[in-house]
Design a protein around this nucleic acid. Structure first.
Length: 489
RNA sequence: CGGGGUGUAGCGUAGUCCGGUUAUCGCGUAUGGUUUGGGACCAUAAGGUCGCAGGUUCGAAUCCUGCCACCCCGACCA
């Protein structure tokens, strides 16, 4: 069949690529490095957005929108920030086309912009430039704003969802009167992300801080949530930055304190992107296709009728209509696939590929017995159920699936997290794939050496990390805690 | 951006080394019929700038040059 996937064991990255395309989530576009997110994939993203947006609003944030283009001069105002993004910026230099000598369309050399515009790779600069005008007094603080937007980072190598030149995300940018408040905000949003990952995406994550080397360009501290994919590689699923007063100083954003003094404000920024779509696929799916957590599945239940003729179908439909009404009344999204152009077996395979959590099949035998066949996507278990109270049972089952997917992922992570106490052991464990907890002397130098020699990076220093005496895996110098090493996406 | 690989119908492919009728096969698509509890079968049909642009040749999917896209590996990154 043309719908066949590579297997995870065979070729993990091919499997991922196949799955994203064949499950109709996204495809490569005519534009290098940029993807088309297809309706089914976008529907999942919309559910993520809806859930996150509510969580942001519940924590006091409001949405706004800032320009796609950023004047080049803004970028140079925060030194480490420019340095971090300079190598991957798309730049607009002209504003007009015209007909060339041979009738082709060319960029009009006369229409050069006086100042080039950068297509935003992130919006700190334009936002902080704007905030200067909005903040005068401590009464204007805190300023808690989020934006849903697209950004562009000119990547050399791209992979659908995981790394594309253009991607969708949200970026929160907040301003506070004190460092404590800003740190608190940074941590609060990290918690929001972790809760979202675990409860909605059903992906367990480790909360932690990045090392100086992995820190966001312009931040004092970068917090992150790290997840493990089914090939044992780590994926950063969200970040929250404490920016200190760097941007306030660069853009001269001051406020009058209660004491009547001019002070620079304290900043945070935090974001998650369509990369989460990639995480979702890689964390749960199997060789038959997607496995979607019920909370994100655009269709939670599909009903497939088994019939030989019109008459049978209409008999089944009478029963199905009642089931649909019941399911809908419980807020469950349901699709009735009564097409006669495809056989049931074809539909089963198709909905497995699409990751629909629950499938209900109903045929003549069921009509006689007052039953349906219920199949769950996560375990592929099938059971025959009485139609009585079916909606309640299905609702329950969806909850179970959500929980089961999470615990499966958690179990995978736990069985693929190791401790290493020698560099030899460390390298061996990395090759098996997974998180390796090891002592590190705290220097960037050692971190970079390990990266060079093993391709592993320090994913994070877990929050509330257990303190223990030890020796750095590489340099042998004393260390007080283990950090998480892994190869990463 | 460096190394490798691949581009032939919607998808997957044969043919390319060694140039020669009308470019192969499978899936999918359309129509008709038989089917329908795990990706049905038969028949018929439609579908091609052989990635793009040049060149060599009587003749190019095939040889040469340049370019483009995608995949894998490295450097960079959410």
């Amino acid at each position: 069949m043309s719908k066949e996937l590579s297997t995870r064991a065979d070729n993990y990255s091919q499997w991922y690529q196949d799955l994203v395309v064949k499950a109709d989530l996204a495809e490569n576009s005519a534009v290098r490095g940029c993807m088309v997110i297809k309706p089914y994939g976008y529907a999942i993203w919309e559910k993520m957005q809806a859930t996150l947006d509510k969580m942001f609003k519940d924590t006091g944030h409001v949405n706004a929108y800032f320009p796609l283009f950023i004047p080049k001069s803004f970028f140079s105002k925060e030194a480490s920030h420019v340095e971090g993004f300079a190598k991957e910026c798309a730049v607009v230099t002209h504003y007009r086309l015209k007909n060339g000598e041979n009738g082709e369309i060319i960029v009009d050399p006369e229409a050069k912009l006086e100042e080039e515009l950068i297509v935003r790779p992130t919006s700190e600069t334009i936002i902080w430039n704007t905030y200067r005008g909005w903040i005068e007094s401590y009464r204007d603080l805190p300023l808690l704003i989020n934006q849903w937007a697209n950004v562009v980072r000119w990547e050399m190598r791209t992979r659908l969802f995981l790394r594309t030149a253009e991607f969708l995300w949200q970026e929160g940018h907040t301003a506070h009167a004190t460092a404590e408040e800003a740190v608190e905000e940074t941590r609060r949003m990290l918690d929001v992300y972790a809760e979202f990952a675990e409860k909605t995406l059903a992906i367990p994550v480790v909360k932690g801080t990045k090392t100086a080397n992995e820190r966001f360009a312009g931040a004092l501290d970068t917090y992150c949530i790290e997840a493990m994919m089914q090939d044992g590689k780590a994926l950063q699923a969200g970040t929250s930055h404490f920016l200190g007063q760097n941007f306030a100083k660069a853009f001269d954003v001051k406020f009058m304190s209660k004491e009547g003094k001019q002070e620079f404000v304290w900043a945070t920024s935090w974001g998650v992107s369509t990369r989460l779509m990639g995480a979702l696929v890689m964390a749960h799916s199997d060789d038959q296709g997607l496995v979607l957590p019920p909370k994100l599945a655009p269709i939670q239940v599909v009903i497939v009728p088994i019939f030989k003729n019109e008459e049978q179908l209409s008999g089944i439909t009478v029963v199905v209509d009642k089931i649909i009404a019941e399911l809908k009344s419980k807020g469950i999204t349901v699709k009735y696939d009564n097409r006669d152009t495809h056989k049931p077996g074809w539909k089963f395979a198709e909905y497995e590929l699409k990751g629909i959590p629950v499938r209900i099949a109903i045929g003549p035998r069921d009509l006689e017995n007052g039953t349906v066949e219920v199949a769950r996507r996560d375990t592929k278990e099938k059971s025959v159920m009485q139609i009585t109270d079916l909606a309640v049972k299905v609702e329950h089952l969806l909850d179970q699936i959500q929980t089961n997917i999470y615990s499966k992922a958690l179990d995978y992570r736990e069985t693929h997290t190791y401790k290493a106490d020698s560099y030899e052991e460390f390298k061996k464990l990395l090759d098996q794939g997974g998180f390796v907890l090891a002592h590190w002397d705290g220097t960037t130098e050692t971190e970079l050496k390990i990266k060079e020699e093993t391709k592993a990076t320090i994913r994070c220093i877990p929050l509330n990390n257990k303190q223990e005496e030890g020796k750095c895996i590489h340099s042998g110098k004393p260390s007080t805690q283990r950090v998480i090493f892994a190869r990463a996406y």
